[in-house]
Design a protein around this nucleic acid. Sequence first.
DNA 1: CTGTTAGCGCGTTCAC
DNA 2: GTGAACGCGCTAACAG
Lengths: 331, 331
Amino acid sequence: MPTSKDVARVAGVSQSTVSYVLSGKRPISEKTRRLVEDAIAELTYQPNAGARALASQRTNVVALVTPFRSALGAHGLMAFVEEIALAARSHDHDVLMVTADEGTAGLQRVAGRALCDAIVVMEVRTRDPRAEVARGLRLPTLFIGVPEDAEGLHCIDFDFEEAARLLVGELAAAGHRQLAAVGWGPEAAERDINYLPRFRRAAEEAARTAGVGLTWAAPAREDVGRAVADLLAGPGRPPGLLLAAGTGPALEAVRGQGLRPGRDVDVVALATDEEALAQPVPLTAVSPHPREVSRQAMQWLFELLEDPAAPPRTRRFPAALVRRASVRTAR
Amino acid sequence: MPTSKDVARVAGVSQSTVSYVLSGKRPISEKTRRLVEDAIAELTYQPNAGARALASQRTNVVALVTPFRSALGAHGLMAFVEEIALAARSHDHDVLMVTADEGTAGLQRVAGRALCDAIVVMEVRTRDPRAEVARGLRLPTLFIGVPEDAEGLHCIDFDFEEAARLLVGELAAAGHRQLAAVGWGPEAAERDINYLPRFRRAAEEAARTAGVGLTWAAPAREDVGRAVADLLAGPGRPPGLLLAAGTGPALEAVRGQGLRPGRDVDVVALATDEEALAQPVPLTAVSPHPREVSRQAMQWLFELLEDPAAPPRTRRFPAALVRRASVRTAR
DNA sequence: CTGTTAGCGCGTTCAC
DNA sequence: GTGAACGCGCTAACAG
């Protein structure tokens, strides 16, 4: 395996010149640059990552702490991971996978061993022990999601609070006095996912403000059908339906009751455009924009890498409602 | 950040002694071991990965080349990735994600820069340019899947050929003279997935040998329903049904025709146990065992890491048929 | 059983 | 604009 010393020898220059050609941290004459570049090509030289990290104190690696079972589902999770990997590559960085089950130890390991320059934490929990650890790290650490105590942390997330307000507002504006929401099941609550209470609390608050009733159900995946049937038979008959999770099964249950969204019942959802459009009746929905959020997260992360002293703060990706056919026009 | 030099000073020993305590490559007296371990704990020392890699020529990192859209679906893909990550951690290794869209360049980068000790390639294609590149690398490279030209490569995969034979055999033994198969859609063929032709060819061969007819359909995801209806109306009425892909939608279509698996029609599938059991009628099936395959792959990989001179070969994870309720007992 | 020493390959001051 | 020299933190001979 050729080293930069080999390149220097072949190019007839010194080792440091090779380094400066590569880093561009010093002006190099056109002539010697060509010499060096040719030598690099001839030897198919590539810098040794370990040596570079040791000398420069930068690894060009971003650690990604990722769960395997996610409230987003495998599909949503892959979307995040894919965007993050692509963004990293576009900045000449690699991605080191850290499994969430390592907990705080994972953070301490990758930081302590200098395996990476920065850390991204996905699927943040409301009370997340990793928050406290992250505050103590000297590495830029970005949370996708907002824990209860976000003080001193770099957090970014979709604005689930605003999403809840928009969805509740839309049903209220359609004339409903009574809303029914299908939320995340007990397994999600158990995992203490940060945005569940954020969304729910904001929805309840918005309903109160609008003076409409709101019934909340959090059925397990397999009980969504029954839960929807119950909700539809409850107050409001049918109430305005807000689907925060389990969109597919819930809509099947609606059809199972012989009801058609946008004709017999109004339905809004927290769902990606893809999901909203895949339904028999396209859904009026707020998309949580997973890909956009991860893209923005990574852009921010690379800014932090250039300016590690940037003050920690929480960023929220703006929510927007897209009206489709599942809500009757306002009465 | 403390270094091993700090540990040595605090423990009152030399740096190399610290190194040997950590690596266990030399017998150390109980007394000095305690001294060193206490110093490590006191300083919360962790070895610098870059320095260690530079000195030892081992990174303790495994690169994983992974696609984002997979014939397995996001769920199946995550299963692979999860198992690989867990296996890596259990051997004190980390996982570097390399996106498949980097192609051969990704392999050359992680190998050339010495970012990892070994490479795992998922979703191998029938004619895979990465095969040729891998042959030229000095890093152990493990293919999960078998390309057309597997010469000189370490490959491991589920035995799709045997799976096809078992499934065809089961339907033939049930008395069918005519079989109909639902295979992977055009998008999968386009991606040149290695096991598609392997499975199909073996199925056709087995049908020929058994003297039964076999009609093959490769509908796109959204056309599965129609394709199944066509197949059921074709020769055999109904023919024995072999589901290689699209199990869920295909079975819905079967029900849509008013047919019940195991009563009106015999159905076998290439499907995980989870998938087979999730159906209204539990399916007689061969599971491709994604988790077991990745576990075995990683075990092999770590063996290769200890003995890089091990001769390249192709390993196949044995296929087994599990009989459930979707096939009538042999006539 | 332990200490001394010489690199691993690269980034970066310095002198020139 | 260029090159020599040192150090990053650790491992692995080589001594003892």
